[in-house]
Measured scan of single mutants.
Amino acid sequence: MSIQHFRVALIPFFAAFCLPVFAHPETLVKVKDAEDQLGARVGYIELDLNSGKILESFRPEERFPMMSTFKVLLCGAVLSRVDAGQEQLGRRIHYSQNDLVEYSPVTEKHLTDGMTVRELCSAAITMSDNTAANLLLTTIGGPKELTAFLHNMGDHVTRLDRWEPELNEAIPNDERDTTMPAAMATTLRKLLTGELLTLASRQQLIDWMEADKVAGPLLRSALPAGWFIADKSGAGERGSRGIIAALGPDGKPSRIVVIYTTGSQATMDERNRQIAEIGASLIKHW
């Protein structure tokens, strides 16, 4: 067993022997301040990774656009098919120029040779490549099948209805392509620590998230040296922004954090800054 596999296998073990965790309302004060600064709703939840206990939450059962955070769930569904012998990570998928959609920095470079399922998941999570996500959605049967996968996990809230990039439209009061912070946090925890996926697939999923290259201005910008984070960000229309993450000190994750916002007129930089400040408060009061 590799060191990384050992780390993920012992996530519940280490967490069980940690000192009790206590909620700190100071972080919620910052979440509410972010709402004021952005002029928009902000949803927040913080779960203990081992027990699933909610440590703090704000608007945990209000719907927010998922945006690209759905790509972690998508690759979880792909990995479940791999575990069941219905898919192979090494299978190569070929596609054409007509398949390319807006923001496809990886797939646009491989029109000639195609990409493997493993490479597509890596591109979808680490670079948020939209064509990679659409190609992977095709392998599982489309958005409705991802929703069905989530329902089978016990998540009857999260739903995907459309493809990239239309799913980022974020129309107010439109339930399409949305989740709730509580539902997303619980589902992410199941994917990373539950028995739904094999140990190898859980490790692969967290490795992809740990290698995320496009979430630097968010929670990662607030992390002290030595902290662990595996995350996936999302951005959408109407001032929408979000991030889902597993993080913790001492090089291992111990909490799940989900943050979503929508309806702001603020710039992307300002949305990023507010999420980073929430992260800084979380870490300060850990």
Rank of each mutant, 00 (worst) to 15 (best):
M1C: 01
F6H: 08
F6Y: 10
A9P: 14
L19A: 15
P20C: 05
E26R: 07
E26A: 13
V31W: 03
V31G: 02
V31Q: 01
K32F: 08
K32M: 15
D33F: 03
G39N: 14
R41G: 05
V42Q: 01
I45E: 04
L49N: 05
G52V: 04
G52P: 04
I54E: 11
L55S: 06
E56P: 01
R59G: 04
E62A: 09
S68V: 00
S68G: 00
S68A: 00
C75F: 06
A77Y: 12
L79S: 03
S80F: 13
V82D: 05
E87M: 12
Q88K: 12
L89F: 08
R91S: 07
R92I: 14
Y95D: 01
Y95G: 03
Q97I: 13
D99G: 06
V101L: 08
V101E: 09
E102P: 15
T107K: 01
D113G: 11
G114V: 03
M115T: 05
T116F: 04
R118G: 15
L120E: 01
C121H: 00
S122R: 12
T126I: 09
M127S: 09
D129E: 01
N130Y: 05
A133H: 01
L135M: 10
L135V: 10
L135T: 06
G142F: 01
P143W: 02
T147I: 08
A148C: 13
H151I: 10
G154T: 05
D155A: 01
D155E: 04
R159C: 06
L167I: 13
I171H: 15
P172I: 12
P172A: 14
P172R: 11
N173V: 10
E175Y: 13
P181W: 00
A182S: 13
T186N: 13
L192Q: 04
L192S: 05
L192Y: 07
L196M: 13
L196F: 13
L197K: 06
S201N: 09
Q203K: 14
W208I: 03
W208T: 03
A211K: 12
V214A: 08
V214P: 05
P217V: 09
P224S: 06
G226Q: 09
I229N: 02
G234S: 09
G234K: 00
A235R: 02
G236Y: 01
E237S: 15
E237G: 15
R238E: 08
R238L: 10
G251H: 15
K252E: 14
P253W: 07
P253E: 06
T262W: 08
T262D: 07
Q265L: 14
A266P: 04
T267S: 13
E270H: 10
R273T: 12
A276H: 14
I278T: 03
K284M: 10
K284E: 15
H285K: 09
W286T: 01
